Amino acid sequence: MAGYNDMPDEVVDVAVLEDLRTIRLRKRPLGAPKADEVQLQMNCVGICGSDMAYWSKGMAGGFVPLDFSEEGLGQGYCGQMGHECSGTVRAKGAQVTNLEVGDRVALEPGVPCSDCKLCRLGRYNLCPKMRFIGSAVNRVPGALCRKFNHKASYCYKLPPNVSLQEGAMLEPLCVSLQGVTRAKVGPGHHVFVSGAGPIGLMTAMCAKAAGAATVTVTDMVDAKLEKAKEIGADFTLRADTPNLAQALERLIGEQFDMSFECCGVPAALNSCIQVTIPGGVVCVVANLPQSIPLDLQTAVRHEVDIIGVYRYCNLYPRALALVASGKINLQPLISKSFPLEEAQKAFEHFASGEPIKVLIQANAPEDCAV
């Protein structure tokens, strides 16, 4: 077994964003894992909406745009994305006791400081010192590479019946689970989801798993609405339907208890407010522009609570249990997989608009599909 002190540095292949819409394979040094880390052979890495935004526009979520100039790159931007990921333990640090070499794991990408007030309150997703891998803003290298070191306490061992593909998809599932948990979806609730991308579809899955009576999904892409039906949505409707709010209410005969904005379109957030029952909840899951016109008066007059979601906290074990038990099946969301050498093609494919979840296999597939 490879140990903590006997591992030399090595050079590994890394997919690097070097300019807008330009990813190239480069080689970078990787040291031995620290005492509290494991070294992983990366298997599956998913492309998320934020990755796509950085690839196509150089910015995401209202953060400062990337500077691809020589001066900007000199400030430390590494261009190494990838935070939806799974891998196999190949070595471990001296202090690691929860994992063994050969274990297949899902990585929780955010490692908080554990000392600040928010961490101590249990809301470590809001930690101001969070090190989130693959973050272009914080310049923390991501997992879109052959091998990667990560803190062992933020790696979760996968049971035999959960594939490495599913392990990589636990990260976006936790985003959706955070929204459903914060909105307190429960048995008998009528839920509306705006947007049938990966997060929207996973939000629908989490709502159904929580006992929602009905889940209704809207989108502009017919293929995604078909996928919503496949994964258990009770009703679907095109988002460009005339008089959308009235059409949605006719589907279930009343307004919705909870609405989730998962597409990042400002007008969709106002639709969520309009179709939510007085006293209900609107949960904003998607990234939106920093300033948008908002029907705040309706929300105030109806005492609709508008809540936000920023990543997740304390949810990886729950998400893994939902997948392992079969209550949530992530396999239908996988559109296509690409090898690391074709990372650029993977992003181009995702940019076509219809794929749900595109995965990059950083190494040989192993048991990526159970």
Score class of each variant (00 low, 15 high):
61 G>P: 03
78 C>D: 14
256 F>A: 00
131 R>S: 08
21 R>Y: 02
189 H>N: 15
173 L>I: 06
28 R>M: 11
297 Q>D: 10
163 S>N: 02
11 V>F: 05
230 E>S: 15
282 V>N: 06
246 Q>Y: 01
271 S>L: 13
292 I>Y: 09
74 G>I: 00
68 F>S: 10
216 T>E: 10
105 V>C: 09
240 D>E: 13
162 V>M: 07
305 D>W: 05
43 N>L: 07
104 R>W: 01
186 G>W: 01
238 R>Y: 09
354 E>R: 10
142 G>E: 09
264 G>E: 06
291 S>Q: 13
284 V>W: 06
217 V>P: 01
332 P>L: 05
194 S>A: 15
23 I>V: 15
278 P>W: 07
131 R>C: 01
300 V>G: 00
215 V>A: 09
39 Q>M: 14
139 R>T: 13
275 V>L: 04
105 V>W: 08
116 C>K: 08
280 G>L: 05
284 V>R: 11
331 Q>F: 07
44 C>F: 07
326 G>V: 09
19 D>V: 09
201 L>E: 12
332 P>I: 07
144 L>Y: 02
132 F>A: 12
306 I>R: 00
256 F>C: 00
75 Q>A: 12
3 G>D: 04
309 V>E: 10
339 P>L: 04
109 P>E: 08
73 L>M: 15
249 E>L: 02
173 L>S: 08
119 C>E: 12
19 D>K: 11
108 E>G: 02
182 R>M: 12
158 L>K: 07
343 A>C: 15
138 N>Q: 13
203 T>Q: 05
30 L>H: 00
258 M>Q: 13
307 I>M: 12
209 A>I: 08
32 A>C: 03
357 K>C: 03
179 G>A: 14
265 V>R: 08
122 G>E: 11
238 R>H: 15
284 V>E: 10
171 E>H: 09
209 A>L: 12
11 V>N: 04
87 G>T: 04
338 F>R: 07
40 L>P: 06
136 A>P: 06
229 K>M: 14
236 T>V: 15
71 E>Y: 12
258 M>W: 03
337 S>C: 14
212 A>T: 04
196 A>L: 06
337 S>F: 05
190 H>Y: 13
138 N>I: 03
172 P>H: 10
110 G>E: 03
25 L>W: 01
137 V>D: 11
360 I>T: 04
97 T>Y: 03
262 C>G: 03
276 T>M: 13
216 T>L: 09
346 A>C: 06
69 S>R: 01
205 M>E: 04
164 L>Y: 05
163 S>I: 05
158 L>F: 10
49 G>S: 00
108 E>F: 04
8 P>T: 12
209 A>N: 06
313 C>A: 12
57 K>R: 15
38 V>Q: 06
316 Y>N: 09
324 A>I: 07
128 P>K: 07
7 M>L: 15
300 V>M: 13
40 L>S: 02
59 M>C: 06
91 A>P: 08
147 K>A: 00
153 S>W: 11
111 V>E: 01
111 V>H: 01
285 V>W: 03
247 A>T: 10
98 N>K: 08
20 L>M: 03
126 L>A: 08
355 P>R: 04
133 I>G: 11
